[in-house]
């Protein structure tokens, strides 16, 4: 890894929140507020592969949409290299510098356009290439992501899921971005293509000194790819830690549960969680999972104390780890 410029801050997020108000429930038609992202702060440095993990609905994609300017924030600030993040400022040229690869390869590609048009569109828009070079350039990009060049003339619906995801990666790479937000880039891909994409992402990262925000729910990928891991639960950050430290033994109770869950991927090892509200088919009530007053993780936490019911912990530094818990584990298992 390169040392020069390693310490320069690329992205700085300060007390960022996104609240949705939406549907009423079946029996109660009052509007609910969903804190999809709630008071989140972190920094990403140049050349980092900063991974964000957490279970479904914890706010990962909402966070990435905020960074991409695809949704408005409710409060808080985002800085890109010291400037307030503003996609409308031509001078900053952020549409080119920050790109995203979406989780869902189905809805993210325009079904009416041929592949080469899709792949080259951002590059043409941002004047990376000329329109007449679109075909040639797209073929080059497809090759980069391990796809047969002849796919340039096809439409998205003619491709399988994995092939479509490779197209969307090719499209994002087409403008040579500085920061790539990867929202579960391989979760819809099969092993072999996934291996190819992971290798590709690592190669591109090394060669071009790119910075990645790598969103995933798979800790096996965090260990494989990332320098830092940021654990989210219920819209909040639970822990930010260097990856090697994390795998030696994370400090937050929820992080431990996540780490144990990858061990459950052995043969026939389903349902081995240390959650207090153990994953048991018969007593699941998703509605009570998130505590609304004190610590968000209270209802499932195995280390909870009375103090955690009504008081909210804050993200605190603990050496080079930041942890959001009154009673964290001490380092190493």
């Amino acid at each position: 890894m390169m040392d020069n410029g390693k310490d320069s801050e690329v992205l700085s997020i300060n007390k960022l929140s996104k609240h949705y108000s939406g549907y009423g429930s079946l029996f109660n038609f009052k509007k609910n507020i969903i804190k999809a992202v709630d008071n989140v702060s972190f920094k990403v440095y140049k050349g980092d592969i900063f991974s964000i993990v957490g279970e479904t609905g914890c706010g990962k994609s909402t966070l990435s949409k905020l960074i991409l300017g695809l949704t408005n924030r409710s409060s808080g600030e985002i800085f890109y290299k010291g400037n307030i993040l503003n996609y409308n400022l031509k001078k900053l040229d952020l549409r080119k510098k920050i790109q995203i690869v979406f989780q869902d390869p189905y809805s993210s590609l325009n079904p009416k356009k041929k592949i080469y048009k899709i792949v080259s569109l951002p590059a043409i828009k941002n004047k990376t290439i000329k329109k007449k070079d679109a075909l040639q350039y797209s073929m080059q990009m497809l090759k980069k992501v391990g796809l047969d060049e002849n796919y340039v003339f096809k439409f998205p619906h003619e491709l399988s899921g994995g092939q479509r995801q490779r197209i969307s990666i090719a499209r994002s790479l087409s403008v040579n971005p500085e920061l790539l937000v990867l929202d579960e880039p391989v979760s819809a891909l099969d092993v072999s293509v996934s291996a190819q994409i992971l290798n590709l992402l690592l190669d591109l990262h090394e060669k071009n000194n790119l910075t990645y925000i790598f969103i995933t729910h798979d800790l096996r990928l965090v260990r494989h790819m990332a320098d830092k891991v940021c654990v989210m639960y219920g819209g909040k950050i639970m822990e930010i830690s260097p990856v090697d430290k994390f795998f030696d033994g994370p400090l937050h109770p929820y992080s431990r549960v996540l780490l144990e869950s990858i061990l459950a991927y052995g043969p026939k090892n389903i349902l081995q969680f240390a959650d207090a509200g153990n994953i048991n088919i018969n007593n699941i009530n998703a509605g009570i999972e998130k505590n609304s007053r004190g610590c968000v993780y209270y209802n499932l936490c195995s280390r909870r104390e009375v103090q955690c019911i009504n008081n909210e912990p804050e993200l605190k530094e603990n050496g080079d780890v930041q942890v959001n818990c009154f009673f964290p584990y001490y380092s190493s298992v």
């Binding site: 899921g161 979760s187 729910h217 800790l219 389903i270």
Partner: peptide
């Protein structure tokens, strides 16, 4: 691919439901 888009915890949940 019923669990492809799911996180580990939910994914194991779905697997467990299928087992059930």
């Amino acid at each position: 691919e019923p669990t492809t888009a799911l996180d580990v915890k939910t994914s194991l949940q779905v697997l467990a439901l299928i087992e059930k």
